[in-house]
Amino acid sequence: MPRSEEAEQWANAVYSAIQEIPHGKVTSYGHIALLLGEPQRPRQVGVCLKSLPDADSGHHYTNDTVPWQRVVNSKGMISHRGPGSAQRQAEVLRSEGVEVKGDSMGEFYIDFSTVGWFPAELPSEAE
């Protein structure tokens, strides 16, 4: 089902904001929502990432142009979106030099105190 114009604008804002997260840094869904002026919408940030188009889709924002791997939940945990998705995200983050720890339950965590990215505003808005 196609997105409404409002939903498309929101998704584009989410994708654009995520593109500003520096290599090797990680933030939360909630912080992206806060930076976009909608602190009550962290789940919608996750929905946007879950529906991020594939690279060969012809869209401007894709899973190759948006560093989706740099967004995790507020506990620093990688959310499961499907079989193997958390493992894949952990591997991509590790390839960026981010330390990702796993536990015995198959959960993956990052330490926000070392790799967290929580600016008061988006760098593009500070200019």
Rank of each mutant, 00 (worst) to 15 (best):
G76F: 07
Q44S: 09
L49N: 07
R70F: 04
I21S: 09
T114I: 15
K25F: 03
Q19W: 00
I18P: 00
R81I: 01
E125Q: 12
G76Y: 06
K101A: 15
L52S: 11
R94Y: 02
R43Q: 08
D103A: 05
K101R: 15
V92Q: 12
G106Y: 07
I32W: 00
I32Q: 09
S4F: 01
V26P: 05
I110A: 09
V100E: 02
G37H: 09
G102Q: 12
Q87S: 11
G76M: 09
W68Q: 09
K25M: 12
E121P: 01
S79R: 12
A120L: 11
A11D: 10
L93V: 15
Y109K: 10
S74P: 01
S16F: 03
Y61K: 11
P83H: 14
K75D: 08
M1V: 14
S113M: 01
W10R: 11
K75G: 02
D103W: 08
A13Y: 07
S104T: 15
S113H: 06
K25H: 05
N12H: 14
E20P: 03
S104L: 15
P22L: 01
H80Y: 09
N73S: 13
Q9Y: 02
H60W: 02
E5F: 07
I78G: 12
H60R: 09
E127V: 15
L122N: 06
E5Q: 12
Y15I: 04
P67G: 08
A7I: 03
I21L: 04
G84Y: 01
S51T: 07
G46D: 09
P2W: 07
D54C: 10
R70M: 09
G102F: 02
R81E: 12
P42L: 05
I110S: 00
F118M: 11
M1K: 13
R88Y: 10
S113T: 15
Q9T: 08
Q40P: 00
H80S: 13
L36M: 03
W68R: 12
E5M: 06
S85L: 05
L122Y: 01
T65V: 12
H31A: 01
W68N: 04
V100G: 01
A120E: 11
D54Q: 14
D56I: 03
C48Y: 08
P53T: 12
W117E: 13
